[in-house]
Amino acid sequence: MRAVSNIVKGFKRSFRFRRVAGYIMLIQAGLSVLVALLSINYVNTSIGQSTNLMKIIEGYNHDVFQDLLLYESTGWEMIKTLIALTVFVYLMLGPLISGGLFNAYHKESDHWNVFWKGGSRFYFSFLKLNVLILLILLICAGIIGFGAITFATHGLENFVSEVPVLIGVGVALFVAILFGIYLVSVSARIKWQMIENDDKRVWANFRLGLKNLKNKRMYLVVLGFLFLLLSAVVAFFSNALINCIPESGFALMLLAFVIQILVLFFKVFLRNAYQAAIIE
């Protein structure tokens, strides 16, 4: 119940800091729009004058996309590279975003200056912390993954049915996800602690954070699980809503685009609410 009430409080706080959500949304949109522009250019310069292109107005068309990727693969390779680069740049901007968000929460102000100062002051400390958390996550995911693969290989060679293997792999995945969300919570708590104490030392705060969180492990896992559940519900309903729109003309396409933007914006609020609930 505590997790639920804190998520509710988190949402209240998240909606109070609308401008911060707007900054984050702008950063994300600024990156993703580059991919969109390159994609538009790619399609226009390759099959932009083919009547076949009109088929995709109605939805995915395998012949159109298959022939496009087959005969115009260079442009697609560029898009893939840009997507990878976008993700990397966003990960590098991550400390700025979380620093800005927590500083705004701490100072109770969603002014750009507060956001920027928090992000820039703690950028390198948060980057180091992110790398550390990511390393722990990768090592643990590697151990869980290795265990799961070993079990699956053994199971497929020795069990009568694949069902125990599926259950085993499912459990491993579940444990990895729980561990992942726990680490996300740990990371957020330590960042909050660093901002609250205005202390940029990574390792000392990491140890202190782990110590302080000893009694909150279950709470953080439940909170994380709740966040994942909410995210899944939002994803399900938003996709269902977007898929409802036929997008057969420009007006409907615009409507779909606006809904997409609103969904993405709501997801920023959701993520900020989760971060706020962690530090409650």
Partner: peptide, 19 residues
Amino acid sequence: TPSLKIGSKMMYWVHNLIQ
């Protein structure tokens, strides 16, 4: 129109990815 649609979808999914 179709290329705009592709661009809008790409933006949506990449945005989701980075989120």
